[in-house]
């Protein structure tokens, strides 16, 4: 049977039916959507429902017993001092990180949006922290911030900022991860290091999408660098900046690798955040129900952030 005869000779029902199926938008639409729907249900929907189920049960790692316990898990975690600390740390962690990320990313994006030699290589290096697996990057930082062998200590000592009779003295080591505030600051620095590249690239895309005519017009209108930046460029990339902010918030609030690798929530539980706590309770501690309850607690927080940012960005949309 040659191709040209398909669907043309009466009586050849089968190819005809196939053809009409291929022409049916209803069929094609559902067929093409199906993989995505299966994917979302299997990998997002089921775990989400399971987590909600776990959070109201007494399920543990070691047993298959599943008894409904209502909100007992939530009550239990709300009573612990770690909970409030982890929640406020998570929020502090996300907000402070984003402040630095947005400032840093704006600076980098301004530079990267310019034309200069070696721009390609500069972009490549700036993307590196984002391209590195989080856990590997965090381990490198763990070594850099080591309590005895940190190169930062060495540099500070040579600059006479650390050691007896100096600014940070008399101790010989900063012990970055062993002191409450310094540990939190270290975590924030590493997170800024990791998230700035993505925000920079997003903002750079925003900046390069501003029409040259608009910038030339501002130039002819007599606007200098700062006025153009604050009155033209930043307002125009505000919607895309809020998307960068949204990504940054979600990545920070849901990330456990950096805190887990660097401090495991310590010293004591002073740098604890919700995802790490959920993991420690549910997986390491075996109390799946309570762990799920902690994890579920993130959901309304993230949802609120997403709704707020998306609404704000739609309001700022201009063209």
């Amino acid at each position: 049977m040659s191709d040209s005869t398909i669907g043309t000779i009466p009586g050849q029902e089968k190819p005809r039916r196939l053809l009409s199926l291929a022409d049916s938008e209803r069929f094609l639409g559902s067929a093409f959507l199906l993989p995505a729907v299966i994917y979302i249900i299997a990998l997002v929907g089921v775990p989400f429902v399971a987590a909600i189920g776990f959070s109201v049960s007494d399920v543990t790692v070691g047993s298959t017993a599943f008894d409904f316990r209502g909100f007992q898990n939530f009550e239990a975690i709300l009573k612990t001092p770690q909970f409030l600390r982890a929640l406020s740390n998570s929020i502090l962690f996300a907000v402070v990180t984003q402040v630095f990320v947005i400032i840093g990313a704006n600076l980098i994006a301004q530079v990267l949006a310019m034309d200069f030699r070696g721009k390609w290589i500069a972009r490549f290096f700036i993307m590196m922290p984002w391209a590195t697996p989080v856990a590997l990057g965090a381990i490198a930082w763990l070594w850099l911030l080591d309590s005895k062998f940190s190169p930062f200590d060495w540099v500070l000592q040579r600059m006479h900022l650390l050691g007896p009779h100096t600014l940070f003295g008399p101790r010989l080591h900063m012990v970055f991860l062993g002191r409450e505030q310094l540990a939190m600051a270290s975590i924030i620095v590493v997170n800024v290091w990791r998230l700035t590249p993505l925000a920079s690239v997003i903002l750079m895309a925003g900046l390069t999408s501003i029409s040259h005519d608009i910038l030339d017009q501002a130039n002819v209108d007599g606007s200098g660098f700062w006025r153009t930046l604050f009155e033209i460029k930043l307002p125009l990339i505000m919607p895309i900046m809020s998307i960068a902010l949204l990504f940054g918030m979600i990545f920070t609030l849901s990330d456990m690798a950096i805190v887990y690798v660097l401090t495991r929530g310590g010293p004591v539980y002073y740098t604890q955040v919700l995802p790490v706590w959920a993991y420690m309770k549910g997986i390491e501690g075996g109390a799946l129900g309570e762990g799920a309850a902690v994890a579920i607690f993130l959901f309304p927080v993230l949802l609120a952030v997403v709704i707020f940012v998306l609404r704000a960005s739609r309001r700022m949309e201009v063209t």
């Binding site: 029409s211 030339d216 130039n219 002819v220 125009l236 063209t319």
Partner: peptide, 17 residues
Amino acid sequence: PRARDVAMVFQSYALYP
């Protein structure tokens, strides 16, 4: 441009959106 005291209208009008 700002020291030249010229005004320009672009083909796209380049209004600040």
